[in-house]
């Protein structure tokens, strides 16, 4: 995911002694130190998170929405509860909850499977203890495994929470497809399954698109919460790099620059959401072509 050059080293040759450089060169050297390269890579982390989470959440959402429409009662309950519980509770609470809960859940399952003759209790008072073979990641695993595992947990957490939002949107979209369409399908002798896959699903996207666009914006704006999940993301690096650096510990001493780093993050997010807005409105216009909605006729 990330590679880091050691400490203050830079890619430019003239950076050997930063104290002698003029402002422009100093800045160039400063912005290309190994730590800054790590900072730039964390932007890639955010983009990867978005690229992986968006389809996963859509999948979860589709599952939840289909479950909420299901003929089977327990499945319908599950779908409805999944959709409604996330709405009443702050999403940050879910983020903090799922990261620990998922981690413990995985370790518990592995513990049951790998150490069947373990007799001690797993929750010992205020401790959660599994055998060392069931630890995730394993105690002797290299650093990158820890980072990938943390990232994986974050993706899963995001997918569960945003899956519920997506399920809500898709459920509404399925309801919005005119009833006559399904009735026509039934009149042609289609089974409920056929009507669902061949009539309902192809038509629901145009109704879902405004909600899903909104959700995408929301997902972008939720990415800084990765920081709370313990991933070394852009917020982590901005705090780290912006903090006051003493000349004793760094070749590039400076005061408290966190304000500028966070200003840069703000600009990054503004540009990103603005770009998404433009692309999504184009997409909506293209997809609503030939559909009997207001967007197409207006």
């Amino acid at each position: 995911m990330k590679f880091r050059l050691a400490g203050d080293g830079s890619i430019f040759g003239f950076c050997t002694d930063p104290t002698t450089l003029d402002t422009a060169r100093w800045t160039a050297c400063y912005l290309t130190t190994g730590k800054h390269i790590g900072f730039y890579w964390s932007f890639v982390t955010v983009l990867v998170l978005l690229a992986v989470t968006a389809p996963t959440a859509l999948l979860f959402g589709f599952g939840g929405a289909s479950a909420a429409r299901s003929q089977v009662l327990p499945l319908r309950w599950f779908g409805t509860i999944y959709i409604s519980i996330v709405r009443g509770v702050p999403d940050i609470a879910f983020f903090l909850f799922f990261v620990i809960a998922l981690d413990q859940g995985f370790e518990f399952l592995r513990h049951q499977y790998l150490c069947p003759d373990w007799t001690d209790r797993i929750w010992q008072g205020n401790d959660f203890v599994v055998c060392s073979a069931a630890k995730l990641p394993l105690g002797n695993a290299p650093q990158w495994v820890h980072e990938v595992y943390g990232f994986f947990l974050a993706v899963l957490t995001f997918a569960i929470v945003f899956g519920a939002f997506a399920a809500n949107v898709l459920h509404g979209a399925m309801q919005a497809v005119p009833r006559g369409q399904i009735e026509t399908a039934e009149a042609y002798g289609m089974t409920p399954r056929q009507a669902f896959w061949h009539v309902l699903v192809p038509q629901m996207w145009i109704y879902a698109l405004p909600g899903l666009s909104n959700l995408w914006m929301l997902l972008i704006k939720a990415t800084p919460l990765l920081f709370l999940l313990g991933v070394e993301d852009i917020v982590y690096w901005a705090r780290e790099l912006g903090g006051t650096k003493q000349a004793r510990f760094s070749d590039y001493p400076h005061g408290d620059w966190r304000i500028w780093y966070f200003l840069a993050l703000l600009v990054f997010y503004l540009a990103f959401t603005r770009l998404s807005e433009v692309v999504l409105s184009r997409l909506t216009r293209r997809l609503s072509h030939g559909q009997a909605t207001i967007g197409a006729t207006a």
Partner: peptide
């Protein structure tokens, strides 16, 4: 409206805190 709706609240909190610190 664009600035406050287009950026995450989390970042706004951080940025505001450092501005207030200044």
């Amino acid at each position: 409206i664009l600035v406050f709706r287009g950026s995450p609240l989390f970042i706004q909190f951080f940025l505001a805190y450092f501005i207030f610190l200044r």
